Computed example of a mutant assay.
Amino acid sequence: MKLLVIYTHPNHKSLSYSFLEKVIKGSKENPAIEELQVLDLYEEGFNPLLVFNEEKRRRDMHRDPALEKYRNQITWADKLVFVYPIWWGRPPAMLMGYIDQMFAANFAYRDKGGLLPEGLLKGKSVVCISSMMGPTHYPLFFLNNAHKILMKRAVFQYVGMKKVKFFEFGNMENPNGKHAEKLEKIYRYFQRIAS
Rank of each mutant, 00 (worst) to 15 (best):
N106I: 03
K56Q: 04
L15T: 12
R90D: 03
E34D: 13
N53Y: 01
C128P: 02
K13R: 13
V155Y: 08
Y70I: 04
N47W: 04
G113R: 07
L36D: 11
K163V: 11
S16Q: 10
K163R: 15
F141C: 03
K56P: 04
S27I: 01
H9F: 07
S14V: 07
G123D: 12
N174R: 14
L41D: 03
E35P: 00
T136G: 05
H147L: 07
L41M: 00
T75N: 02
L143D: 11
K28D: 13
L3I: 13
Y98E: 01
G114Y: 06
E44D: 14
N11D: 14
D100R: 01
L15M: 11
K69P: 01
D64S: 06
K25N: 13
M94I: 10
E181T: 00
S131T: 15
L39E: 06
E181H: 05
V83G: 04
K56A: 06
F156D: 00
V155C: 07
V5A: 05
G123E: 14
K124S: 11
D111T: 08
F190K: 11
Y42C: 04
H137S: 12
M132C: 04
Y98N: 00
R110D: 07
R59D: 14
P117D: 07
E35N: 15
V126S: 01
S14C: 08
F19N: 12
S131Y: 05
L143F: 10
D64I: 02
W88T: 12
S125D: 15
N30P: 09
G160P: 00
R58C: 02
K163I: 02
R188K: 15
T136S: 11
F107S: 09
Q191N: 07
M94K: 09
E68I: 00
P139A: 00
I74S: 04
L15E: 07
L80W: 04
D100T: 03
V155S: 03
G89A: 03
F190C: 09
L3Y: 10
R90A: 08
E173C: 13
K25D: 14
W88L: 11
N11K: 11
M61L: 14
R192V: 12
L50D: 01
M151K: 02
K162C: 06
L95S: 03
K2W: 10
L80D: 10
M133R: 14
Y98L: 05
M96W: 06
K178T: 06
A180K: 14
A66E: 14
M133T: 12
L20H: 09
N47A: 00
L150G: 04
F167V: 08
R153L: 08
F141P: 05
Y84D: 03
G170N: 09
M133I: 13
